[in-house]
Design a protein around this nucleic acid. Structure first.
Length: 165
DNA sequence: CCCACAAGTCGCT
DNA sequence: AGCGACTTGTGGG
């Protein structure tokens, strides 16, 4: 789903995130890239609705980075399989400071044995942080892995006072 | 269509 | 504690 995505940066004290918007909502969010090399954004016209979404995204992201829980999310336009969407949907139900295991997510979507597939779906999550894939730990509160970098997972969990091993 | 992999989990040693 | 087997969905050949 890469139709004419609009990229907009979000500057935080943790670096510059990149948000990608389709014409339906937030489609992807990237962690800061090591090299800021912010190429001058071509000043394309950004539709008003996208600017609105971006404002919501920025607010939500900063809220989370500050250890809070956003009250409002931008519309999400997640590209993925039905299975992945149900996983992401289940993830969004995890509230601040709570954690779930991959097994619990798997059970929640009716595929108790698909724990590994759940891991894969989390890794394919195009919108980390807003879809709290970092609140998913392995069975005995072990850290597991994280596509965006384990340091991020650790930092985010710490922000929420979550204990892990 | 078949094969290998993924951010897991459980059981056995 | 460590190692291996099994599971399900996804992506590449």
């Amino acid at each position: 789903m890469k139709t004419n995505l609009v990229e907009l940066p979000i500057f935080t004290r943790d670096g510059k995130f990149i948000a990608h918007y389709s014409d339906k909502g937030l489609a992807e969010l990237n962690f800061p890239v090591g090299r800021a090399s912010s190429r001058a954004a071509k000043k394309e016209i950004v539709p008003a609705k996208i600017r609105g979404w971006h404002r919501a995204t920025e607010a939500a992201l900063k809220k989370i980075l500050a250890g809070g829980e956003p009250k409002k999310f931008p519309p999400l336009d997640l590209a993925g399989t039905v299975f992945q969407k149900s996983v992401w949907n289940a993830l969004r139900k995890i509230s601040l400071g709570k954690t779930k295991s991959y097994g619990e997510i798997a059970a929640a979507i009716g595929r108790p044995k698909a724990v590994r597939a759940v891991g894969g779906a989390c890794g394919a999550n195009p919108v980390p942080v807003l879809v709290p894939c970092h609140r998913v730990l392995a069975a005995n509160k072990k850290l597991g892995g994280f596509s965006g970098g384990l340091d991020w997972k650790r930092r985010l969990l710490k922000l929420e006072n979550v204990s892990f091993r």
